[in-house]
Amino acid sequence: MRWAGAAGLLAGYAADQVLGDPRRGHPVAVFGSFASSVQQRMYADDRARGAAFTATLVGAAAGLGLAADRVTARQPLARWVVTAVATWAVLGGRSLTREADILHAQLADGDLPAARRQVRNLVGRDPSQLDAQELARATIESVAENTSDAVVAPLMWGAIAGVPGLLGYRAANTLDAMVGHKTPRLRRFGWAAARFDDVLNYLPARVSGALAAALAPAFGARPREVVRVVRRDAGKHPSPNAGVVEAAFAGVLGVRLGGANVYEGEVEDRGTLGDGPPPAVADIHRASRLSSAVGLAAVGLAAAGLAAAGRRARRRA
């Protein structure tokens, strides 16, 4: 069954790269709509209520995956299909690089108004006053963070916990995006979702950074220098996980990321990551290529891990 799971991860990754996200009826969007309705019923300015909300929805998603695992327990072909479909549903790698490529084209054409509208698909900061350089920085930072959140992390949790890991992780990450904001209304209610997402992404973020460092020579950088940048700069970022991946991308691409961002009228300092100059428009394409390379390495690592576990299980048997 582990071989079926490994093949399912590979097939789901391939489906994401070829098909991307559906424009209508995406399972994650359906889950988000359901979560919004549950939030309306459960909301209170209270951490305990927010924790119950998070546990209920993540538990429901993981429980659905557990049921799928049990139904296909003795059916390798069915397990392969279910794992492939779940993997395709939770990954966002192709959509991420597509958004980055659209922004690259808009900025290359000098169409700042279109790029400012487009970047809202990737970031939560206010883009209304951003110039081409700042839009490039915003895009690369989002590509870096989401390479971990939307590609490496679900693959890792799929390798560790099968379909329940895939669905449970995506549910937790979606709830963090919905309520894990430090706004007056959500500061308490979204606390559990934000902290749980931090826990789930702790290891994937560091694996993402390590994979980026390993791939550095393909981008004209040295792995040792990337590691140095991560060790020095990752802690400057307010996120314990995003800082690792963004610093790694900054080191590989030879650019400087981070700085001041505006969120709902408030300025937040994200620290300075990297030693190079501010990113140029052309660096968006390089970041997109790096994201794709990290994702490919991650699915290979996840599938190889499952296959190795299958071999060990057969030897013990």
Results as ranks from 00 to 15, higher is better:
residue 77 L to T: 11
residue 139 T to Y: 02
residue 96 L to T: 00
residue 105 A to D: 14
residue 95 S to K: 05
residue 60 A to S: 09
residue 67 A to N: 10
residue 57 L to T: 00
residue 118 Q to I: 03
residue 105 A to C: 14
residue 131 D to A: 14
residue 88 W to Y: 07
residue 137 R to H: 09
residue 136 A to Q: 08
residue 118 Q to H: 13
residue 73 A to P: 02
residue 94 R to C: 02
residue 60 A to C: 09
residue 90 V to E: 04
residue 137 R to G: 04
residue 48 A to M: 04
residue 144 A to L: 06
residue 69 D to M: 11
residue 49 R to Q: 12
residue 74 R to I: 07
residue 134 E to C: 11
residue 101 D to E: 15
residue 81 V to H: 05
residue 107 L to S: 09
residue 37 S to L: 13
residue 110 G to V: 11
residue 45 D to A: 05
residue 80 W to L: 15
residue 103 L to W: 06
residue 135 L to T: 00
residue 56 T to H: 09
residue 79 R to D: 01
residue 81 V to R: 08
residue 139 T to S: 08
residue 91 L to I: 04
residue 109 D to W: 12
residue 153 A to H: 00
residue 91 L to K: 04
residue 104 H to A: 15
residue 140 I to A: 02
residue 116 R to V: 09
residue 40 Q to H: 13
residue 147 T to M: 03
residue 107 L to C: 12
residue 98 R to L: 12
residue 157 W to M: 06
residue 118 Q to C: 09
residue 38 V to S: 07
residue 121 N to G: 14
residue 76 P to T: 06
residue 141 E to S: 15
residue 55 A to I: 15
residue 144 A to G: 08
residue 88 W to R: 02
residue 88 W to N: 01
residue 115 A to E: 06
residue 102 I to D: 15
residue 67 A to E: 10
residue 66 L to Q: 11
residue 58 V to E: 00
residue 128 S to H: 14
residue 40 Q to G: 14
residue 94 R to P: 01
residue 78 A to Y: 01
residue 111 D to E: 11
residue 65 G to H: 02
residue 44 A to F: 02
residue 124 G to D: 08
residue 149 D to G: 03
residue 44 A to K: 10
residue 118 Q to K: 10
residue 89 A to S: 12
residue 157 W to S: 04
residue 124 G to L: 11
residue 73 A to R: 06
residue 55 A to D: 13
residue 62 A to W: 02
residue 97 T to P: 02
residue 94 R to W: 05
residue 122 L to G: 01
residue 81 V to C: 14
residue 153 A to R: 00
residue 73 A to H: 06
residue 63 G to L: 06
residue 125 R to D: 07
residue 148 S to H: 02
residue 111 D to L: 08
residue 57 L to D: 01
residue 72 T to F: 04
residue 47 R to Q: 07
residue 54 T to W: 09
residue 137 R to E: 06
residue 38 V to C: 12
residue 101 D to L: 15
residue 82 V to W: 03
residue 73 A to W: 04
residue 146 N to M: 11
residue 149 D to K: 01
residue 77 L to Q: 05
residue 134 E to P: 09
residue 145 E to I: 00
residue 144 A to I: 05
residue 38 V to N: 06
residue 106 Q to W: 10
residue 86 A to I: 05
residue 58 V to K: 00
residue 79 R to P: 01
residue 134 E to V: 12
residue 83 T to N: 10
residue 98 R to D: 14
residue 92 G to H: 03
